[in-house]
Design a protein around this nucleic acid. Structure first.
Lengths: 192, 192
DNA sequence: GCAACTATACTGACTAGTCAGTACAAAGAC
DNA sequence: GTCTTTGTACTGACTAGTCAGTATAGTTGC
């Protein structure tokens, strides 16, 4: 699963940029070849189909993200884990906004050939958040299954705020965005 | 802006169901006609183009949602507003999951002919959440622009948790999902 | 009572164009 | 001398949109 270089890299980069602009279905293989500056034949020499190309793209992006989240959580303890995950996720969204847009658009689709891949990724990401939530609030969750839903909440909050930030107000400092997301969880809104 | 009936209704319903399964780009007009049980010509008699059809679809769904959120907030005060908005949004997502899936997949796209419509909707929804946040935490927000980001966080948390719920564990009672989302904001995760 | 006309809704075969994928001869790269 | 890439032409299935014609229910004139 080494990060591709050379022609494969150009193709993946071009495909990602285009998919972020027009969606995967709206991106044609001719477009990808042109933007990558390679011949169309090279696309099919390196990837067996359009589906495989985009599957590879998502797999690569998702692996990098889960890896980053895993490391962020491993380096911290207790309540700081949530903060570390939120900070890391926001940094990743900023560092690769096109990927974040594509993932956000794909995450609820249930009809893709790479669904399996995508669900596994989703599971891993939520597992990191769930583990951080257990660390922060004690493992004695009141309702069974609620940790996973809370993990989805924290992930969804960060993703939505991150894209809101980068699409509509990209000049705002990253630290302010981290603060805003964490403030949402601080108890000021719904302390029991 | 009366809710269409008859043929228009069948077409919109079919288009929504298909778009939730395959995305808008992945849905063909022939598919829509077949599922709606009408001839393809009727699609074009009732809507001038595929884009207009889906714009109408999103507009209808988004109007109903903002209206519901507005009412929910108007009926409550203080911190209960957040809870009312989260509850209402989750109920709507459950009541029309296909629409929620389509909106979730569209909300970050910046290349659609109906972008204006979509951004306006986004703005209205976030305005409701922002108003509730102001009510809950006092208008003296620490960082300029942070209320909008917090609104995006709360909205994103609810949307992600709602779809997680309905796609992966639809038998879980709605009340548990509301609790889980609100628990995320309770301060147990990141109380300062 | 009925023929002629109008308005509206709908039909489905058809057109013009698009796009994933293929073919293959030639040229670099290592 | 094999692996990779190029360039270009091509195929065939698919798709948005069109349009001449049909169905039906009024309405008007006589």
């Amino acid at each position: 699963m080494a990060r591709p270089t050379g022609t494969k890299r150009s193709i993946l980069d071009a495909a990602l940029a285009l998919a972020a602009e027009r969606g995967i279905s709206g991106t044609t293989m001719d477009d990808v070849a042109e933007r990558a500056g390679v011949a169309k034949g090279s696309l099919y020499y390196n990837f067996s189909s359009k589906d495989r190309l985009f599957e590879g793209l998502l797999l690569e992006g998702m692996s990098a993200l889960t890896e980053a989240l895993r490391e962020a959580r491993a380096g911290t303890e207790g309540r700081a884990q949530i903060e570390a995950l939120v900070t890391t996720l926001l940094a990743r969204i900023k560092g690769n906004t096109p990927l974040a847009k594509v993932i956000a658009g794909e995450i609820f689709r249930t009809d893709r050939p790479w669904q399996e891949t995508s669900f596994a990724f989703r599971h891993e990401v939520l597992a990191e958040f769930a583990a951080a939530i257990d660390e922060a609030s004690g493992p004695a969750a009141s309702v069974p299954g609620s940790t996973r839903l809370m993990a989805a909440s924290v992930f969804g909050a960060t993703l939505m705020a991150g894209l809101e930030w980068l699409i509509f107000d990209p000049d705002q400092p990253q630290a302010d965005v981290v603060s805003a997301v964490l403030a949402t969880f601080s108890g000021r809104l719904a302390g029991q």
